[in-house]
Write a protein that binds this DNA or RNA. Sequence first.
DNA 1: ACGACCGTTGCACATAACGCAACGAGGGAC
DNA 2: GTCCCTCGTTGCGTTATGTGCAACGGTCGT
Lengths: 256, 256
Amino acid sequence: MSSSTVARAMRLLAELGEGERSLEQLAAVLDVHKSTALRLLRPMEEERIVQRDAAHRYRLGPQLFALAGQALEQRGIRTVAAPHLRELNAATGQTVHLAAYEGGEVVYIDKYDSRHPVRMYSRIGLRAALHCAAVAKVLLADLPPSERRGIAEGLEFTPYTAHTLTTPAALLAELDTVAAQGWAQDHAEHESFINCVAAPVRDATGRVVAAASVSVPDMLLPYDQVLALLPRLRATTAAISADCGWTDPTALGREV
Amino acid sequence: MSSSTVARAMRLLAELGEGERSLEQLAAVLDVHKSTALRLLRPMEEERIVQRDAAHRYRLGPQLFALAGQALEQRGIRTVAAPHLRELNAATGQTVHLAAYEGGEVVYIDKYDSRHPVRMYSRIGLRAALHCAAVAKVLLADLPPSERRGIAEGLEFTPYTAHTLTTPAALLAELDTVAAQGWAQDHAEHESFINCVAAPVRDATGRVVAAASVSVPDMLLPYDQVLALLPRLRATTAAISADCGWTDPTALGREV
DNA sequence: ACGACCGTTGCACATAACGCAACGAGGGAC
DNA sequence: GTCCCTCGTTGCGTTATGTGCAACGGTCGT
């Protein structure tokens, strides 16, 4: 037993999500009389959840932005991402990380351990190496080019392995690639026996607010099989982004 | 005559914007029986507008983010402006806002945070104070004088700081100045330690459809250095306007 | 200036939302 | 482990409230 009146109101919101509608159009969607639709819309208009322009056409209102912003502030990206990351972790059995760019550094803000006996070492709150970690590459790639440059030139480029990028130029070139393809890899650049792939999470404004990654020791899966996890990873980050309000403009060819 | 049921549902959303709530708490807010609150929440939960965790505590749900994202998407100007605002944000490192005049109020429709540790607080969807905010002045200044007058006389003129304009006459005089010079300032009129500059964005018909601003705490930059950001801001708004089809008729002596 | 269209209002009727009270599940304390 | 207490859930009868209808009025286009 639930309120059908509220259900109708929610249906109106969904419809307005598609674009501006007149009162009559909205009434037609619900298959109710115009006056009924009007009475449903009025309280939402008062709360600025919906809005109407001079021509009396309805659209979603600014209070919606305010609510979404408050919600994200409270919960943070970590809470929103959690169920999706857990599922990715369950599906792949591998270590899953969530990282964010905060004040010049990339920090791990969540982690789901591999179920295999051999695990990689990391801990929530630790900083990622900016010139190695796949999550770092994803996050840096979203920054404006001028800032990327500044960061790249300020790094130490500690050569952890033979694959580690060791010059600002190499890193900047890599970031261009990452920005273009929409994901990043770490091919034994930090630990000689660990490969990672990472993909960005975007919020409603389209900005990259976090990055998720799968890390796997190559004794478990060789490099090319790690790349095969990419579609699954990207499906996960797409789902998280959607939960943050992001609507993918390149939603054409889908291939989960 | 409007649906009080929907009004109650909206009230619940506003309450959930403040934080997680139990069913009983929500019922208490509306002063209704628990079962009533439950019936109101159920359709919203089905649409994922609200969500409940394992402990049955309600919070705002992912569908709300999706709606907010769609709503932002519908504001065409936001999409056009985004890359330019991002660039301005990157170049100055300061907080950048985009605001529009909608139905008698000035609403922030986009925001790019400062990268400095000390940030100003604001959120997309909030209303700007019409007698303080630089963006408000820019948007009001484009209205016909008669409408300006009506708005100015209907305001409350809350004196946030010592610099706040407190009379309709003072505001109207300021709007004349803004209209003449093509930009506006907020010299510690809303927060005593924050200065802003704003400039208009015009569409192909020449109407001001939005305003962009840079806001900076004066511990970061003193007032006169904020004014020095003006050329950069105006270059940005000019670029956005150009993308909207606006061709500047006063494109003669440029001194940016 | 006229007509057509769309949003708005008042009213009578019936639906659906409400409060109540009993049920059930989960958690904490002893 | 068992009891108790709290909180969410359900069924039901009443009545408030949402609904359709039809007439009104404002706005735009011709």
